[in-house]
């Protein structure tokens, strides 16, 4: 083997890394100190972008929206996924059918899911409101009420992703040694005690994975609000990526948009590190 062979083999990686990772990271940092609308020359503005960001109501609104999304999305995701995984983990006829059904929304494009849910949630003619009015309840403006819209999206996102987490939990549940349950049975433990003191600690890493992936997902939310609400009503569904997109491609504030991207990324890293700490303490 020639000496340069390994380098030749990894060269696609190095090239790709320098063009699409290293350069953007460096350039992104540089951009955050500039004002630039792409067509005029870049202008150095020092920390102005960061100062603006601190006072930018919409930046904080986007952060707050993501928090509100995650507060509903994460617990719901874990609850539904764990329940269904628990049910599937017992001997079930047609388990593979159920698994396949739960997984269906996962493989379909978010665009499809969003268009579908937009119809289900429509105020005047959506199926959900039809159901509500048939049982004598009032209509809900699922996507037009500022107090509700983000939670509607959170539920929809849960519906879309939960199949994946069911599978992850199934893998986790199946890795719990049967002997542990048998020992617990001997001691007369209830089902709840078994779940609380054996299952839960054993699948803690899976829960962590779900939390991290959902958090990253929350900060990456784009197609859903873009199609359904365009960030409204009252900016209550403006997501981080939507705001970056809007600043870049509606106002051509490339420098500020990069600053937003940079700060959102820092927030994500920070949140994930905190989550990891917390999980490590639990275990």
């Amino acid at each position: 083997m020639k000496k340069w062979m390994p380098y030749l083999l990894v060269s696609p990686y190095l090239l790709h890394f320098s063009v699409f990772v290293a350069f953007p990271v460096v350039f992104s940092v540089v951009l955050t100190f500039h004002s630039w609308n792409i067509i005029s020359p870049m202008k150095y503005v020092g920390l102005a972008n960061y100062r603006h960001l601190i006072h930018d109501r919409l930046f904080w609104q986007a952060v707050w929206n993501t928090v509100r999304f995650l507060i509903v999305h994460i617990p719901l995701q874990i609850l539904v996924a764990l329940t269904l995984a628990e049910l599937l983990n017992r001997t079930v006829r047609g388990a593979s059918f159920f698994r396949a059904a739960f997984f269906l929304p996962v493989i379909v494009s978010g665009v499809v899911v969003t268009i579908l849910w937009q119809q289900l949630l429509s105020y005047n003619s959506g199926i959900l409101n039809r159901l509500l009015t048939t049982v004598g309840m009032a209509r809900v403006a699922w996507l037009d009420d500022p107090a509700v819209a983000m939670y509607s999206i959170a539920v929809m996102a849960t519906w879309k992703n939960v199949g994946l987490y069911i599978i992850l939990f199934l893998v986790g549940l199946q890795s719990v040694p049967v002997q542990l349950y048998e020992a617990a049975d001997l001691e007369g433990a209830t089902n709840w005690q078994k779940f609380r003191y054996i299952t839960l600690p054993m699948i803690n890493p899976t829960i962590f994975t779900v939390v991290v992936l959902s958090t990253i997902g929350g900060f990456s939310l784009f197609v859903e609000p873009y199609i359904m609400t365009e960030g409204g009503p009252m900016n209550t569904t403006l997501s981080a990526v939507m705001y970056i997109y809007r600043q870049a491609f509606q106002y051509y504030h490339m420098g500020y948009s990069a600053t937003l991207g940079f700060c959102f990324a820092l927030i994500i890293l920070f949140v994930v590190i905190i989550q990891r700490r917390y999980v490590e303490q639990e275990v």
Binding site: T133, R139, E230, G232, M234, N235
Partner: peptide, 18 residues
């Protein structure tokens, strides 16, 4: 008669896009 208005004088786009 379902308790919701279904005939209005007008409609103009409500989205906040500029």
């Amino acid at each position: 008669g379902d308790g919701y208005v279904d005939q209005w004088l007008g409609y103009t786009e409500v989205k906040a896009i500029w």
